[in-house]
Write a protein that binds this DNA or RNA. Structure first.
Lengths: 334, 334
DNA sequence: AGCTGTTCCGCAATCGATTGTGGAACAGTT
DNA sequence: AACTGTTCCACAATCGATTGCGGAACAGCT
């Protein structure tokens, strides 16, 4: 059966196509009685507007694009959910595009794929590496927003969370509960994030009047610390562990158990991210929640603002949240 | 600056629009010399075809839709990656639509959203619940494929994995290594899956000549077993634990440690899914990997087949894979 | 020369909606 | 009655591509 078009409705209602279009789109130049009749007929005929016809004429697609790394991480999909929800709430579709790593793939995307993409704007979710060529999007007429752009500033509006202040608050929490020898464990993933959290750690020490002890810092750049390294760190007799990622906190917890330390009695532990496994660890991990959904939603709002009002590059910061569980030894206080 | 169209190219090349179109689309009715000239001019002018204009004329969108539950699970995003990769490989875009739970939202999607969706086909990723109204898609002209449709058969083609056979193989692995008192732990998530895996468990016992002992079965329908329940189960002195989900295996592992059992020496443990946390458990968990990426890719292929050739409902089964780590006590054998 | 068959390309219609312009119909005012 | 101002709607163009049909140009053959 052929598609029902506004021409069919027009014929049925005895009016012209433009009148049908205006009636269905809430345009004022249509009599109340006529409008109702048209709406009824449209419903009866099961009319559904053609997205491509409308796009062709209006130039809008009512669709947002999301450029994602091919790499797997729960945080990325969490952000995606935030974006998807907010887009849906605004009646926009979401088109997801995986971006293979490598400059060649980036160049190809910008020059080949992007110009044809039926989207009104683009959200970039960038992996740890430093994309070189993807920055060319800034020289394009495509409105774009970056999420979590740390290492590489792409001259585009971006959304970020309070990595430094969030970690500072968590470490301060340990300090306030009497921990004095708090070790920092970094490593793996994006250096820029580790760096910010490390600074938050230093902020907290300073504020707590605790001198910084380099022996209490484990910074295996760009990779996960080994069990041996953690064991060695434990030899320095810390009473607290401030770990830059929940996943690494999990390894640390295992090392602590293996070495016979009790958590949180002997050593308190905090992590970062509020990963899904944080709540099921033994003991459940106190951590800093990154509001990924909210970051996604904020990116959508910024993008819409950019599309509708053509705002210049800006940025938006979403606050992290301290989630207190058992591993920091102060659960009962809260 | 206005968009470059084939009319611009035509004028520049001194030919007509149809010729430009045919030249750019590899149509045979164009002379080699003319084609090359047109291609060169198109590149020089930075021509990018209009997706909406093409869609309007051809009726195709070169886009696949993915209907996802709003619910978070790493497996869903893994499937999505599989779909995204395969779609990209075939030059198709992917439009992701979150589906809020509830019949009302489903009805609204089918009647309101679906008819206007600019996609050529739809992949349904269904959550545990039993969708009622979403099945109406089957009465639509929209080609669709379901992934992991267990509890609710929606008269649509679907992709599944070998839940029963996969779990049977894993349990048999324990049997072959001398375990005789193997307990089954189910619970949480989709009943249908738990049921299939339970049957795989029974298959393995039968094949191993081990009588089924109801005391060794923990089946807290529709929720996660509590620590107490697991502890009680351990009181029956099992030498193996066959757990229907990695997440629950993790809880079981914690209970085992707390009760002073050694894994795998005293009790061997296997899980199901190969969740991200399986490899970091203590000890690393032997489990059955669900090939989520492959399932996603298979769904894309089936959908394309359905779009292009109009195939009737069928199904495709992707084999699971036994991943042997330390928790089953036979790592050294492999 | 006349006929047949390729090769290559143009004309005009078409997909389904939106929008600028113009005007008919009617009411209200002087 | 003439004029002004609303209200409501139609005509026709337009967005950018694809495609059925037809035909010009040319070669090969008898």
């Amino acid at each position: 059966m052929p598609r029902v078009t506004i021409a069919d409705i027009a014929k049925e209602a005895g009016v012209s196509k433009p009148t049908v279009s205006r009636a269905l789109n809430g345009h004022p130049d249509v009599g109340a009685e006529t409008r109702e009749r048209i709406q009824r007929i449209a419903a009866d005929l099961g009319y559904a507007p053609s997205a491509s016809a409308r796009s062709l004429r209006t130039g809008r697609h009512d669709t947002l694009g999301l450029l994602m790394p091919l790499q797997q991480w729960w945080g990325y999909s969490d952000i995606q959910y935030g974006i998807a929800e907010e887009s849906a709430r605004r009646g926009l579709h979401l088109m997801v595009h995986p971006l293979r790593p490598g400059e060649r793939a980036e160049r190809e995307f910008v020059t080949q794929t992007l110009p044809t993409l039926p989207v009104d704007g683009l959200i970039l979710l960038m992996p740890e590496g430093t994309p070189r060529h993807i920055g060319a999007i800034a020289h394009t007429s495509m409105p774009s927003v970056v999420i979590d752009d740390r290492g590489h500033r792409l001259d585009l509006p971006y959304v970020e969370s309070t990595n430094r202040a969030g970690f500072r608050e968590a470490v301060l929490h340990l300090v306030r509960h009497g921990r004095r020898r708090i070790a920092f464990v970094g490593g793996q993933l994006n250096d820029a994030f580790a760096q910010e959290r490390f600074e938050g750690y230093l902020d907290a020490l300073r504020e707590g009047g605790i001198p910084y002890d380099p022996d209490l810092t484990l910074l295996p750049a760009d990779r996960e610390p080994t069990a041996d390294e953690i064991t060695e760190l434990l030899g320095t007799d810390p009473d607290g562990l401030a770990v830059a990622w929940d996943e690494i906190a999990f390894s640390a917890l295992n090392a602590l158990h293996a070495a016979g330390h009790r958590v949180p009695d002997d050593v308190a532990v905090i992590g970062f991210d509020d990963s899904p496994i944080a709540r099921v660890m033994q003991p459940p991990l106190t951590t800093v929640r990154q509001p990924f959904r909210q970051m996604g939603a904020a990116a959508v709002r910024m993008l819409l603002d950019s599309i509708e009002h053509g705002r210049p590059p800006a940025h938006f910061t979403v606050p992290t949240e301290l989630v207190i569980r058992d591993s920091c030894g102060s659960h009962e206080d809260q």
